[in-house]
Computed example of a mutant assay.
Amino acid sequence: MGRIIYVSPRTKAPVGGIRTMYRHVARLRHHGFDAYLYHVDQGYRPDWFQEDVAMLYTADLRAPNRLRLEPDDHVVFYESASNSIRFFSQYKGATRHLFCQNHFLMFDALHDLGAANWQALDVERCFASAGIIARAAETCLGFPTVPVVPYAIDHVCFRPEPKSLRIAFMPRKRPDDLEFIRRCFSGAFPDLAHVAWTEIHNQSEERAAEILRESALFLSLGRREGFGLPPVEAMASGCLVAGFLGIGGREFATDANGLWCEDDDLVGAALKFGQAVRWVESQDSAASTMIDAGRRTASRYTIETMDAALIKYWREATLSVQPQPLSARAPRL
């Protein structure tokens, strides 16, 4: 059985999709697969989460007149991996996969490279991180079957603790909208001016989880999401969640587990969030009921569930029986 090489984006910012790639590699190696994370910057390892995975860099793969790849290797691209696709095109023998975590980005590399479809880039298989993404990829990308490997939440890290009346939020997807929403909130609910707002931005996974554990509420600012992990992590942490789903959040959202509003209904978001704060502050039973529903939703996203789908996908993709432990194999590099 060959190697499985996930190509990471170059960005070093904390992003849930990148965290998921590293988690896949770690779990694959745990189950005996020869899996690696490829990063273009020599020696780079992320410092914003704790996951020690096997890394490959350009120098590890480059050889005179070719790449150090074998026919039984597998290379996993992300949606906008244009430069890495060019790099790996120096060798045609390995099997290419697309791991699609956001259907809003699924044409990015095709546009950059002037390709009609992913198959023209020698990508043979696709898998996705949510059902809504898989359905889009099957319909629009020409892959007959797109298996889903669902997200996993670290429930040891993202867990409820005693709360303070604090609003946690991640502004990355809607920085301008956030100011509008906060002004609407202040105008409509002047009596709630004492409520603290805590930003989560460019912080470690542990620090983000700590803020969620301590915060009673989470304002979801998703936009054009493939899934949208932050509100589910907030649910797991026992927050009352309100705000936007970014389309992809329809995968997990119900009327019971959050106060959701239509995308770009900024005034509506402020009003719903004011309602959420009032529920929490008055200890209304509606708040505890919704928080409990959110925790039940988040409980579906476990390492065990992800592992089952991940291992099934790669066993089928590699046509492999039970892989040998890594300690029993000679090194490839």
Rank of each mutant, 00 (worst) to 15 (best):
D284H: 09
D284S: 06
D284T: 00
D284I: 00
S285Q: 15
S285I: 08
A286W: 06
A286M: 07
A286R: 15
A286V: 11
A287C: 10
S288M: 12
T289V: 12
T289A: 11
M290T: 14
M290D: 03
M290L: 09
M290A: 15
I291N: 03
I291D: 01
A293T: 00
A293I: 01
G294T: 06
G294L: 05
G294D: 01
R295P: 06
R295L: 02
R296V: 10
R296P: 00
R296I: 08
T297C: 12
T297I: 08
T297D: 08
A298E: 06
A298Y: 03
A298Q: 11
S299L: 03
R300A: 15
R300D: 13
Y301D: 01
Y301I: 09
T302Q: 08
T302F: 05
T302L: 05
I303G: 05
I303M: 07
E304V: 00
E304Y: 00
E304R: 04
E304K: 02
E304L: 05
T305G: 13
T305M: 09
M306H: 07
M306P: 01
M306N: 02
M306I: 08
M306K: 07
D307P: 06
D307T: 14
A309M: 09
L310S: 02
L310V: 05
L310A: 04
L310C: 03
I311W: 00
K312F: 02
K312M: 10
Y313K: 02
Y313E: 14
Y313N: 10
W314Y: 14
R315G: 06
E316W: 07
E316K: 10
A317L: 08
T318K: 09
T318H: 06
T318V: 07
L319F: 08
S320R: 05
S320G: 08
S320N: 06
S320Y: 01
S320V: 06
S320H: 04
V321K: 15
V321G: 12
V321M: 13
Q322G: 02
Q322P: 00
Q324D: 15
Q324L: 15
Q324P: 07
Q324T: 10
Q324V: 01
Q324Y: 13
Q324M: 15
P325Y: 01
L326R: 07
L326T: 08
S327G: 09
S327Y: 14
S327H: 13
A328V: 05
A328E: 05
A328P: 04
R329V: 03
R329W: 01
R329G: 01
R329K: 07
R329A: 05
R329L: 11
A330I: 13
A330D: 13
